[in-house]
């Protein structure tokens, strides 16, 4: 069995103080494994982003333990947490968060520059990764010259260029139309499958479901249930481990060929 890339055990997180104190997470345990794309779903305020921040070493839990590649981050100072983020975790944000004054190439190169990679190597790697996400023709474009989908692909390139073991994505399709949303999810699922990275996607968007190997549902700071995909007769199926509930949604093995159960929940096919 593959060791988890990120493992959280019995995490609680209390935010605020006094009368306004809120328990954002309450005993959450979760393991993110390489080669797997996990969707973290739930209503607003359910604790998804707080959990993502803790898994991404941006917040420290009130109690419980987080391990990155088996190493506990308990008591790690901010500088060490920054090193863990830099070396092991790639981030993708809903609003891309590219530096508007840098070209696509420099935005990707930045992730290597903060790690101290020599400029020549960093440039070559950044170009390669931009080619992987289909943007080799836009390396000199600035974010304002790119569409939302292209900006998100640059952000994905930035997340993966440093060979991070885990990719944490916060609503990566939230600002995108169907076509671009599909392209981004397809890219993320391929990153998980082809590069053996653990990919965790926080989303409200049910159209992302077909790309997931696992779906975690959260509510009120707790994990309600987890569903794992399985393929039966060439169709992808979802199986709730807690309730044995089988989601009545069937997809083909290849997400590109996915035909949605009903149109309102679908992404348009990827542009050829």
């Amino acid at each position: 069995m593959t060791a988890p890339v990120i493992e959280a055990t019995d995490i609680t997180k209390t935010l605020g103080a006094g009368a306004s104190q809120v328990r954002a997470l309450n005993g959450v345990s979760l393991a993110l494994t390489g080669g797997e794309l996990t969707l973290l779903m739930g209503p607003s305020g359910s604790g998804k982003t707080t959990l993502l921040s803790i898994l991404g070493c941006m917040l420290t839990p009130t109690s419980g333990e987080v391990r990155i590649l088996g190493r506990s981050i308990a008591g790690a100072p901010p500088g060490q947490l920054a090193e863990l983020r830099r070396d092991h975790i790639g981030f993708i944000f809903q609003n891309y968060h590219l530096l508007p004054t840098l070209s696509a190439l420099d935005n990707v190169r930045l992730a290597l520059d903060v790690r101290g990679e020599p400029a020549g190597t960093a440039l070559a790697k950044a170009k390669d990764v931009l080619a992987t996400v289909g943007l080799s023709h836009k390396i000199n474009a600035f974010p304002r010259q790119l569409s939302g989908g292209e900006q998100q692909r640059v952000a994905i390139a930035r997340a993966i260029v440093g060979d991070a073991s885990a990719i944490l994505a916060d609503e990566p399709t939230g600002a995108l139309d169907s076509e671009n949303g599909h392209a981004v999810m397809l890219l993320l699922s391929r990153i998980a499958r082809d590069t053996n990275r653990g990919v965790l996607v926080v989303t409200h968007d049910p159209r992302a479901l077909p790309f997931a190997d696992r779906i975690i549902h959260m509510e009120d700071g707790r994990i309600l249930n987890e569903e794992y995909s399985t393929t039966i007769n060439g169709k992808r199926d979802w199986f709730d481990t807690a309730t044995s509930f089988r989601r009545p949604k069937v997809t083909a093995g290849d997400e590109a060929d996915w035909q949605p159960a009903h149109e309102a929940m679908s992404y348009a096919p990827a542009a050829k």
């Binding site: 941006m58 920054a82 090193e83 863990l84 830099r86 070396d87 975790i89 903060v114 790690r115």
Partner: peptide, 8 residues
Amino acid sequence: TLRAIGSS
């Protein structure tokens, strides 16, 4: 963003 991606 720089801090999030791990810059010192």
